[in-house]
Design a protein around this nucleic acid. Structure first.
Lengths: 206, 206
DNA sequence: TAGATTGTTAATCGATTAACAATC
DNA sequence: TAGATTGTTAATCGATTAACAATC
């Protein structure tokens, strides 16, 4: 938050956090940059630079204190403050995302689900109720929701994005297999699973 | 395949492909680099560089021929040759991945599913049968499978990865929320959805 | 032809890596 | 103290961007 991090650094931090949590659960007290580097296939200097970027520092010869480091990452990445979000599309993927409870460790709190299928309206997934998408604009304003997770078919994604943006949504996590276009000031992350597979598959062909 | 592309270029190519397919379906004949650039928020020079990297070229003043460009991308990214894969873990996420039929356009062909739940063994998801994971080593060798999609809980992921590597698997597309470590020569793509969310959430806080 | 767009070379920018001093 | 590991400065590397010539 304070200073702007480079995108590559920002992407590495959650991975550091995961390792730090592992160490934390195992009761370790310290971790060295070379241990992190080894696990993630990153240069150890890089790891120290990244850690410096979030204003934390270690102790020469000893490493980084797990408890402090974890706390710093949580603070910097704002993991402890839950960010309420709506999830649109209660198919298999939507259900998987709704049921996965690991997101709460990363600050994501899906509070309600939306679909168009009358059979699904009113159902409960854990504590989350399924509403009709026609209610989404009102509910988003009412609950002051800024984030939407889109797990609907590609054909409907852009239209739905337009709708929720009008409802005041500022960030869209898009799992539909299309690149959504949005006005300036709105954040979109196109998850693009198929594209990720292509990268994997090309590496395999090296 | 021929020359090695930079990772950023490789990641952009599937996105170009998606746009080219849209144009193709709309019956367009040509596309200009600035159109692609605008849609994807990439520099137009970058787009031309990337296209040059796959040995395709356009026509000054006109642009890139959709049919030719599409064909070149398919060839270069090897999209037309289906790559058989096993999917392990038939939960909601696994089901979503198994049912999604858009992967075939990107060369992924999930041919069988695996789980440990006796209730699920023998079920069919579309044309894909669910087998017990104990069969996976034999079946992988038998069908000469090189790719596995992992959609199982984090705690089991590393162990399963070790198992399938012994069975000759060369690439793992891992959706479990852990970073899997593998020996050299094995390709892993850790999908890490929570980490992606953190990046989105940090951008929102800018 | 004139103008628009490609292709390519050069310049910039920023991330990664290497070297090494600081320090516990 | 000696040695290991951090923190930081400098060097390298590579990706992106800018400039412009080529061309249809």
């Amino acid at each position: 938050m304070q200073k702007k991090l480079s995108a590559p650094t920002l992407r590495r931090l959650p991975r550091y956090y995961r390792i730090v949590c592992e160490y934390y659960e195992r009761g370790e007290e310290y971790i060295r940059s070379c241990e992190i580097a080894g696990k993630l296939d990153v240069d150890e200097t890089q790891v120290r630079k990244d850690i410096a970027a979030i204003n934390y520092s270690g102790k020469p010869k000893i490493g980084f204190n797990i408890g402090e480091f974890k706390f710093h990452l949580e603070n910097f990445l704002d993991l402890s403050r839950p960010k309420k979000a709506f999830l649109i599309g209660v198919g298999n993927l939507g259900l998987a995302l709704a049921k996965y409870n690991g997101f709460s460790n990363y600050g994501l709190d899906i509070v309600a689900l939306f679909d168009t299928d009358p059979q699904k309206i009113g159902l409960k997934v854990g504590e989350k109720e399924v509403f009709h998408v026609s209610e989404i604009v009102n509910k988003a304003k009412q609950d002051n929701i800024k984030i939407v997770v889109l797990a609907i078919p590609g054909e409907e994604a852009q239209k739905m994005a337009n709708l929720v943006i009008e409802a005041g949504i500022k960030a869209i996590w898009n799992f539909a297999p299309v690149d959504i276009e949005v006005p300036g000031g709105i954040i979109v992350s196109n998850q693009d699973l198929a594209a990720d597979f292509v990268v994997l598959s090309m590496k395999l062909n090296e």
